[in-house]
Design a binder for these strands. Sequence first.
DNA 1: GCTTTGGGTTCTGAAAAGGAACTCACTTGG
DNA 2: CCAAGTGAGTTCCTTTTCAGAACCCAAAGC
Lengths: 147, 147
Amino acid sequence: MKWNDLHNSACPVARGLSVIGDRWTMLVVRDCFLGVRRFDQMQERLGITRHVLADRLRKLETDGVLRREAYQERPLRHEYRLTDKGKALYPVLVTLIDWANGHVPSVGEPSVTLVSRETDIPIEPQLIDARTGNAIDHRSVRAVTSE
Amino acid sequence: MKWNDLHNSACPVARGLSVIGDRWTMLVVRDCFLGVRRFDQMQERLGITRHVLADRLRKLETDGVLRREAYQERPLRHEYRLTDKGKALYPVLVTLIDWANGHVPSVGEPSVTLVSRETDIPIEPQLIDARTGNAIDHRSVRAVTSE
DNA sequence: GCTTTGGGTTCTGAAAAGGAACTCACTTGG
DNA sequence: CCAAGTGAGTTCCTTTTCAGAACCCAAAGC
């Protein structure tokens, strides 16, 4: 199998990664959540080459994660914004941040963390089953192929 | 910036991705959660080349996500198992699955979903702040560079 | 002996990423 | 009016990484 055949797999992990599993892609999404919307800003923040950034933005747009909107005519300029599909990636980003802050220490510099916007107290992300309220872990759950 | 400079970034997203953001890596982790432990099994299931698989397993081992354990001597054979750090990736996997099942439809084949091991009812993953019990979304939270 | 099994390594050509310069359509400052 | 600047890319070339296949090795089974 090749990387590009992943998108029509029965496994949601494979399908998800076919969209966001690319190098740099989640970092572009992160910047969008932080309010960065312009090409040059992203390019500078990420240190990515312009070529690769243009490619990632194009892919994210065709996959419906971002949309490209004109914010001025003459000269025509666009900005990139998350669609609902893109905003739905927030839990993935939060769990990734939580994992990295717990298990991939930042050397030298202090790490960025998430705090409640109201109280400024660090959040402690936890996954629960909304139906039952129970915590989700790999012992309480199994994977099935449903019709 | 290059991809390989990501691991000592102040941003946990970048540091996390420096470990698991590589092509194929999360699929290897997925297989580990499914109980696949042998090289050849993984190679066949993933359709990845043996070369790349060996490389990813080596990296995951040095990063402390997997450990390599001998399950027999003569001939010496190893299997790969998740460490605690690896198991801590489960929430990332679950949120990714949930996103893909909701936003990246499976064409043709039915998708794999997660159900409660007790009741066989599909789970509805939700992220809450364990401290307050409130749901986490990108409006209730902000990122800060702490001490 | 010869083949199979598990777990890799080596080799070659193709694809993707990195680096830097160039383009195009304006706008602004002198 | 001309030069320089800005935003958003594109082009060209080099270096890495990936895909595909073949090869290796130690032991076991026939």
